[in-house]
Design a protein around this nucleic acid. Structure first.
Lengths: 217, 217
DNA sequence: ATTTAATATGACCGATCAGTCATATGACTG
DNA sequence: CAGTCATATGACTGATCGGTCATATTAAAT
């Protein structure tokens, strides 16, 4: 956690430092993110940075924490799902809103994506625990689906967890990328990015999963 | 490409350098992979390395090329699929054999994985082209599926490409992880990958996709 | 034995990095 | 004013990096 000094800073300056830090850690992985570059861009002295943060790791973990809090805040501000909701209705909601979060906070989401799926600068301990919790949550969803009779019971639990988590983790990037360019659409020319509707895409994707996972008759 | 000097080396020494290089670039991304560390481990002088390779990039691109050639060789040595094969039979074959390649060449596969999906050290130009070609190939498969009547025609092409490519790109890592096999164990040859039954998992996954993508009645 | 060419070597260079610290600045207190 | 304390500063350190180069070694050819 940052030192008190950091929180005593004028809001504007503090936010500038955070914004530039998020940009730095979004563009580079932990080891390649440069504190020297950050302080130069923020217009503060190296020494000042180390009055605000214990070290590079301190800043990084703080950014991860912010990302988690921001996503939580974002999802809670949306109409949260009914606990008794059907599994695939919940998944559709989570997929849409998760992607919407990546749209509204692309850099912060990128920092979190790196931390969760690519970049493990400190051993495996701190983040693997989080990762295990996420996987356990997916597992509980799969088991819920089986008990609701909407997922075929013979399917391997961990395989379905893999399928769901992989799709969910990358759906946001897919929508983002399909907005900038449509690399796959070589045949029919460019796509009108304004027309991209992520509820429609999430709906199609969930429908595919729902049919694919449905119990066989 | 390496200099002729590199190919004049005794086979054993040349292979040692390549093996250690693959390990280095499997464990670290391009920028963090250390030539200093490589030459120290290989027991050669820094200057010798730069007689073999123009620079770090030269080695890296050579490794990527090797990875492509090895995978091609691996797949061709297996009974190749019938061109008229049903789409999902082909996908099942590609998924199983792709994962098997990751089992038999875990470090090389990791280098390639990084290059294709995480690490873009040189602009976007050289690898985005390759990536676009891969995506175009997936797109052709999707269109084949639609023409074969095994993929619902109303589904968004790029969405299905995303679904298939994401699952295929990560299936190998899932199988590796679900067997709780560390990549280092595989590299040491202590695991017989042929005993792992990934056909069952690939079969379940393809069945899910096949049902999910099937035309709606 | 002598010359020539190929290869091996590691000290060295400039750049960059995370992190430190003595010192300076400024703001508030008495 | 003087004294105190939080904050700001950037030159500096030691480490590591990719890459270079003059020199040494070895092998081949004459």
């Amino acid at each position: 956690m940052p030192q008190q000094t950091f929180f005593n800073l004028p809001d504007e300056k503090r936010q500038l430092i955070l914004d530039l830090a998020i940009e730095e850690f979004a563009q580079h992985d932990y080891k390649n993110a440069s504190i020297s570059n950050l302080v130069a861009r923020a217009g503060i002295a190296k020494g000042s940075f180390y009055q605000y943060f214990e070290d590079k790791r301190d800043l990084y973990l703080y950014l991860i924490q912010i990302a988690g809090e921001e996503k939580k805040r974002f999802l809670e501000q949306k109409s949260p799902p009914n606990p008794g909701m059907h599994l695939f209705d919940f998944l559709r909601w989570a997929m849409s809103e998760g992607a919407r979060f990546e749209f509204s906070n692309p850099l912060l989401a990128q920092v979190a994506y790196r931390a969760l799926f690519s970049d493990r600068p400190f051993g495996n301990d701190p983040f693997n625990q989080l990762q295990d919790m996420v996987m356990a949550y997916y597992l509980s969803l799969v088991q819920l689906g089986k008990s609701q009779g909407v997922i075929e019971g013979d399917l391997d639990d961990s395989l379905v967890v893999f399928l769901l988590s992989t799709i969910f983790n990358n759906f946001g990037k897919f929508v983002l990328e399909s907005q900038k360019i449509a690399p796959t659409d070589l045949a029919s020319g460019s796509v009108d990015y304004r027309s991209v509707n992520m509820d429609e895409l999430a709906g199609q994707l969930i429908a595919i999963l729902q049919r694919g996972l449905a119990p066989r008759n």
